[in-house]
Amino acid sequence: MSTLLLSLARENPWPGLAVASLNLMVALFLVGVSLLLGIAISLLACVHALVDREPPALADAGKRRAVA
C-alpha cells in the first residue's frame, strides 16, 4: 500500500500539497482560537478582580484627608 502512495506522490504532487496546506490552515486556526481564548480569559480575570475589590472604609478616608 505504501508503494502505491509513493508512486502516486511521485507522479502528482498536488494531493500532498493540498494536505500540507490544509494542515497549515488547521494549525493557524488553532493558534488563533488559543489566542482569542487567552485574551478572553485575561479580560474576564481583570474584570473579576475589579468587581471583587472591597471599597475603602469611610474612617480610612477621613484619616487620609486629615493627614493631607
Rank of each mutant, 00 (worst) to 15 (best):
A59L: 11
P15T: 08
G32F: 15
R65K: 12
N12E: 12
V31T: 10
L50T: 07
L43P: 01
H48V: 00
A45M: 05
V26I: 12
L37H: 01
A57W: 07
F29A: 14
P56A: 03
V19G: 07
E11D: 11
A49G: 06
C46P: 04
G32R: 15
P13D: 09
V67Y: 02
L50W: 10
C46N: 03
G38E: 00
G38T: 00
P15G: 06
N23S: 15
A68W: 02
N12I: 13
E11H: 06
V51E: 06
G62T: 02
L6E: 10
L43S: 15
L17A: 11
A27M: 14
L24C: 12
P56M: 05
N12M: 12
A66I: 00
V33R: 13
S7D: 06
M25W: 06
V47K: 11
L44D: 00
G62H: 11
D60L: 10
R65W: 05
F29V: 05
K63R: 14
L35V: 05
R65I: 02
L37G: 01
K63L: 11
V51G: 05
A27E: 08
G32D: 05
P56G: 04
V33P: 03
V67H: 03
R10N: 12
V67D: 00
K63Q: 07
L50I: 11
V19E: 14
S42I: 00
R64Q: 03
P56T: 03
L17Q: 09
G16H: 09
V67G: 01
S21N: 09
V31G: 09
G32V: 01
S2Y: 04
P13A: 10
A27H: 13
L22K: 08
L35Y: 07
G62D: 00
L50C: 08
L17G: 14
G16F: 05
M25V: 10
A68C: 01
V33E: 09
A61K: 08
G16D: 07
A68L: 04
A9H: 03
V47N: 02
L24A: 13
L8R: 14
T3F: 11
V26R: 12
P13E: 04
C46T: 04
D52W: 06
D60E: 15
V31A: 12
A45E: 01
A9W: 04
N12F: 10
G16S: 09
F29E: 04
D60V: 02
L44R: 02
S42M: 07
A40T: 10
I39C: 11
V47A: 14
N12S: 13
R65G: 01
I39Q: 13
A18K: 14
A27L: 15
E54H: 13
L22C: 13
P55N: 03
A68M: 01
L17E: 11
V31H: 05
V51D: 09
G62Y: 09
V19R: 14
V33M: 12
M25F: 15
D52K: 15
A68Y: 02
S21G: 10
A45K: 03
L30W: 12
R53H: 13
A20Q: 05
L50K: 15
P15R: 06
L24N: 08
